[in-house]
Structure formats: structure tokens, C-alpha cells
Simulated scan of single mutants.
Amino acid sequence: MRRIPLKNKIIGVLLILFVAVNFIPSQYFISEPGPALNLSEMITVEGSYRDDDWGGFYLTSVSQRRASFWDVAVFYLFPSENKELIPVRTAIPPGMSESEYLNLMQELMVESQLSAQAVAYRELGYDVEMRGEGVKVVDLVEDGQSEEILEPDDIILKIDGKEVELASEAVELIKSYPIGTELLLEVKRDEEILEFEITTAEHPEEVGRSSLGIYITTAGLDYDMPEYVNFTSENIVGPSAGVMFSLEIYNQLTEEDITRGNRYAGTGTINFDGEIGRVGGELLKIIAAENDGISTFILPEDHGVIIESLGVDIEIIESPDFRDLLEQLNVE
């Protein structure tokens, strides 16, 4: 039998190690600042007053990909504030595939776009309406308090006696209760109406926030809007750009530029009532804005950034809701 030369064995082992380290995915995602995107190029509003010399509102994104073992090693050997390493199990619900998770994020993006339109139009005095058929359970947090009680495709109709039509309504309602509160849920399962008592627990990703351990979307979402708004936000999913969508739509529907020629970036969800909510990746999005030369960044009032230790030259505006935000921007 012909013996393989030692040199060839070493080369073969090194080749296997190279492939393993660089191409076999780890159980982490690596997140980095993405681009800052001018929303005037992504949103077209029927009847827009927008002019080319106006300033702009910008969506800041986070670029996320599955980390290789090499990426993980570099992250720990050369720490950088421009990167975050996130375990896959905390980013995607256990038992949910990446494609299913992306589909959920796409549904939340659509609802976010509709809420953004509703908030902007209502602030300008228009009559708008959004409605749903309840809150659909998409998945359950593994080992969470609802795992053995609720099922995927259950429709939550009431929480603590209060009707919920939209997922955003349910999120805000659950958040309003202290951790450890027992809530009575009215649930439609197939054609049967059931009641369950579930105790709120701390949200797995947000300290101090109540959660029921469920992933939800709106069932049978429908709406009436006064004008047509077109979004071209390919490759952007999730609800985190809601507040910036509202600002861009509102600005296009006013005769004078509310930015006064300035550029604003920001992040935050927005619900039908105009409340601005917390999102993830806030620090990376601030860095993305600074990288693009934007000097002002908008955050929810409830955020996870330590402003004093940011280390970036950027003004921060913190706001709880859309009306307050317009006041801070000196919009009359």
C-alpha cells in the first residue's frame, strides 16, 4: 500500500481546518452597522409636497449574518464596539426556522408600515382606521410560561377583559402590567372560545418588561387610509423603522420641510396610538448614522443605550410618542 507523504497529510489537515473555521457556521450571528437609507427614496406618498432641496429622515439598519468560527475568534481576540455577537437561540425562537422567522419579521414590517401611515395621517387631521380579527400566536418561547397552555394559530381576543385587535395593542397592554401579574386570556382555538390564566414574566431580551412568552402577529389585518403610500424597502424586515416611516410620510404631506434642511436618523417601533417602542441593535444603528455623517439620532424614551458612554459625536433625541417627537423637532 502506498503511503501518503507526511507533508501531504499536514496540508490535508490544514485544508480541513481552514474549511471548518471559515465556512462551517457557528451557533452565533454577528451584527455590524448597516447603511443609513434615505427614506425619501423608499417611500412615495400620493400628493407629496417633497422637494429635492429638503433635508431627510433616514432608516438605520443592522447587517446580520451567521458567524463562522473564524468570526467568533476574531470577535473575542479583537473586541470592537462596531460588532455584536448574538447566540442564534436568542435571536430566533427555538423550533422556528430562519425562513419562518424572516416571514414573521416581514409580517411585522407590513403592520409597522400601516401603523406609521395611520399615525402620520391622523396627526394631520385625517380619519384613519386599522382593524384586525385578534392577535395570532405564531410561536411560543421555549420553556416559557405559555408553552404548555397556548398553541400556534390560537387567536387571542381579550387580555384581562380588554379586547385586542392588533398585535401592537397586545404588546403595549402586556407591557403595562408588572412582572408576575396573572392575566386572563380569552382565546379562539379553531371554532372554540377558551379562557386561560397566564402569569407575566420578564421579557427574555428586555430587562424589566413584562412578557407572556409568545410571538404574535395580527390576524385578518385590514385598514382604511386616505391616500396611497408605496414602500420599496426590500431586504429590510421587522418593525424597528416605524417611527422614521411616520416622520417621512408626515413630512411629505406638509408644505414646508419639517427637517429644515437637516438629516435625522433613528429607530423605534410605532403603534396605532403613536407610542414609540424599544428595539434591538440601537448602538450599532447610532454608529451607522455617525458613519454617514448624520448628527442627530432619534430613540424611544425607553431604550437600552447609555448616552453618557456612547463615545460618538451625535445628538440624541428621546421621545415616548409621535406628538412629543414633533414638538421636540419644533413642528407647529
Rank of each mutant, 00 (worst) to 15 (best):
V110P: 02
G161Q: 03
A118T: 03
T269S: 15
V19M: 06
E133L: 10
E151N: 15
Y121P: 05
P93V: 03
S210F: 06
V164C: 13
L247N: 07
T267A: 01
M109F: 14
S210L: 09
L166E: 06
R209P: 06
A265R: 06
G274E: 01
D51R: 13
E81N: 09
V164G: 02
V279L: 07
F18C: 11
R122Y: 02
I11A: 15
T181A: 12
V229W: 03
E308K: 11
E123A: 15
D292V: 01
I16G: 08
Q27L: 09
Y228Q: 13
R278S: 14
G180P: 08
Y121C: 02
K9W: 11
F245K: 04
L6W: 07
P178F: 05
S99G: 05
I30K: 02
A289C: 11
E206W: 04
I24C: 10
S176A: 14
E327K: 13
N103Q: 15
E165L: 12
I249V: 15
W70S: 14
T218D: 10
A265P: 09
S40I: 04
Q27G: 12
F29A: 00
Y58K: 06
A120R: 01
V110K: 08
K83R: 15
P152F: 10
G281R: 02
P35N: 14
I193D: 01
M130R: 03
E165G: 12
Y101I: 04
I236A: 01
E191C: 06
S97A: 12
G56L: 07
Q113G: 10
L183E: 00
G274L: 05
E206P: 02
S99Y: 07
K158R: 13
R263S: 11
A73F: 12
T44W: 07
E172Q: 14
G134V: 01
S246P: 05
P239F: 11
L299N: 00
E32D: 03
V187N: 09
G180L: 09
L325E: 04
E100S: 15
V243W: 02
S176D: 10
G144S: 11
R209Q: 12
E205W: 08
E151D: 11
Y223R: 03
E308M: 04
N103T: 14
E98A: 14
P33W: 01
L140G: 10
G56R: 07
G304K: 11
E148W: 06
L6E: 06
I316G: 03
R89P: 02
I10N: 01
S99H: 03
H203R: 09
V171W: 07
D222V: 08
E111T: 04
I316P: 06
I179H: 05
T60G: 09
F231H: 10
K175V: 01
V141M: 13
G125D: 01
V137E: 06
Y215S: 10
L77V: 04
E275I: 03
H203T: 11
P5W: 03
I214R: 02
E308H: 03
E163H: 09
R3I: 11
I306V: 13
